[in-house]
Amino acid sequence: MTADDLVLHTNPMSRGRIARWMLEETGQPYRVELVGFDGGNRSPEFLAVNPMGKVPTLVHGGAVVTEAAAICAYLADAFPQADLLPDPTPASRAAYFRWLFFAAGPVETAVTAKSLGLLAPPERSRMVGYGSFDQTVDVLEQAAASAAPWITGARFTAADVYVGSQIAWGLMFKSLPARPAFVAYVERLQARPAWQRASALDDAAMPKQD
């Protein structure tokens, strides 16, 4: 396998940082195509790959995967030798899928809605998947607090990449409260060599300030 077989279309100021970290965890060679937000994401060439014009977008041997959570799950499945899948026990698999999709659904929606001032009023909370922002944060805290040391137990998985990224960004941008369980979990994640490599690569790709 060569780097051209696995191509990440990304921007360092985007959720593409999640996909970059996941790729580093796999240990596979890959190539990066930087997509600018000054029109590059709306170019005919990129729209032919992802009509949404969104990053990250992963191309693996001609197959296209979009959405950061899906990319994490796909890579864990495509490269089982990286040991990023949960133990094959019902409890571990349940935790893996539960928290991966909880972070991609209720957490992302609740945090974004609050940032935009668009949270559902209490009387309409049954209509939205996250219920309320506070409820979602409390449940996310339970997941972080029970991580021993990872979401599914002793084994680090793709779910940790995605859930951990959501929490890390929430702490950085103060869209999540700095609860001790969140802080401790993120500290464990950021000690991983793959996280550090991915972060350094994305930081180096950031637009230079004049």
Rank of each mutant, 00 (worst) to 15 (best):
A145Y: 02
A113Y: 03
R124G: 00
A110H: 05
G53C: 11
F182N: 09
P193F: 04
D87K: 09
M22V: 11
L116G: 00
N50Y: 08
A19W: 09
S132Q: 00
V59A: 14
Y74R: 10
S175D: 07
P88I: 09
A198C: 05
R192A: 12
T57Q: 11
A70G: 03
M13Q: 13
Q209I: 12
L118K: 13
A82G: 12
F37T: 05
V183Q: 14
A194E: 07
T112M: 13
P121E: 08
R93L: 13
A191T: 05
P12T: 08
F79E: 10
L201Y: 00
H9P: 08
A95C: 01
T152I: 04
T26N: 11
S132D: 00
P106F: 03
G170T: 02
A82I: 07
A168Q: 11
A147R: 01
E45Y: 04
L85R: 14
A78S: 13
E141F: 00
A144G: 02
P56E: 12
Q196W: 02
P44G: 10
F46P: 03
P193S: 09
A144Q: 02
A198Y: 01
P86W: 01
A191Y: 05
P180Y: 08
M13D: 12
S92V: 06
V183Y: 12
V139D: 06
D77M: 09
H60M: 10
H9M: 07
E45F: 02
R31V: 05
V49I: 15
D5L: 08
I18T: 15
R15L: 06
P180N: 08
A145N: 08
M1D: 11
W150P: 12
N50Q: 04
V163K: 04
D202W: 07
Q135A: 15
G36I: 01
D38H: 07
V32Q: 13
R93K: 14
L118Y: 00
R20H: 15
P122N: 01
T136A: 07
I151M: 13
P106Q: 10
I167N: 11
W169D: 13
L34K: 09
S165W: 06
E45T: 09
F79G: 13
